[in-house]
Amino acid sequence: MSASAPPVDAGSQDRARRLSETVFRVRELGIVLALLLLIGVTAAIEPRFIHLGSLQDLARNASIYAVMAAGQTLVLVTRNVDLSVGSVLGLSAYISADLLSHGSPMIVAFVLGILVGGACGLLNGFLVTYGRVPALVVTLGTLYAFRGLAFLLTGGAQINAESLPDSFLKIGTGTVLDVPTIAIIALVVVIAVGLALRNFRSGRELYAIGSNEEAARLAGIRTSRRVVAAFVTSGALAGVAGVLFASRFGTVDATAGNGYELTVISAAVVGGVAINGGVGSVYGAALGALLLGCITSALIVLKIDSFWQQAAVGALLLIAIAFDRFIGLRLDAALRQRSAARAA
């Protein structure tokens, strides 16, 4: 990565730099390691875990969360939060399933799911930027409002797998070359969003806004527009997740995706996305979702009470943020020593 690194003037600076690189470049690697460790240990105890079927299940479980975590990352990076994603998923899942059960083509269902989600995100974004209402308050409010809307639409009804076309359900259950279709879709989405966030100005500007909003404004970034875009993307991806939800589970009612928001945020934070903005990648968030999904599957395979799952996820989140904080403190200490050395 750092081929053109020029020589540095002090050994202590080297140390500070190495530490900061640990934080910035190796964070995702840590999750990959945790993931491999978990899979390895589980497989050692119960070899069935690495059989094709259970790995496919694992991938399916994580896919929906990964798509939502990708969207959530965009919002978190700008130092905002989107709590409404679970309700948006419910809304989009029901609307798209309803269309399909009335014979609409699949593409229409997907597009409409995305549009519904995007519209929800647009509302969130406008309220946050132009209404100057804190994101936590806005999305907490829309969490209720969108969920209520979903209940109103369904009127308590439920759409079952029988009324959905087989081709649609295949997305959720089928495979391409042994890889679950839904996982392929999730992978494409994650990579696309990840590339956009890494390689396009608009993506980098989201980091700038979360890192130092005042400086971002001084650099001429249209911060409001960017934040709205982040919310729209998060909503649209929750919309995609809704359609995927319908195809995976077949049964959709107004409660679809209830409580997902906190799992999604957990996944992103475990994946190294800072809740205070400016730091994190879509890949990390997706890996975080995979890790959380993997814990669930491992507990099932190991016949440990699934009751431990929630506790484990919570503990993992706490460990992840404590670890990030610890590294940050080490970095500060290294820097202070460096300036001490300089003064001497």
């Binding site: 906190l262 945020i265 934070v269 929630q310 996820v313 919570g314 989140l317 706490l318 943020i321």
Partner: peptide, 9 residues
């Protein structure tokens, strides 16, 4: 958010 999961778990 973490302890929410932890305590419920």
């Amino acid at each position: 958010i973490g302890t929410m999961g932890l305590f419920r778990g």
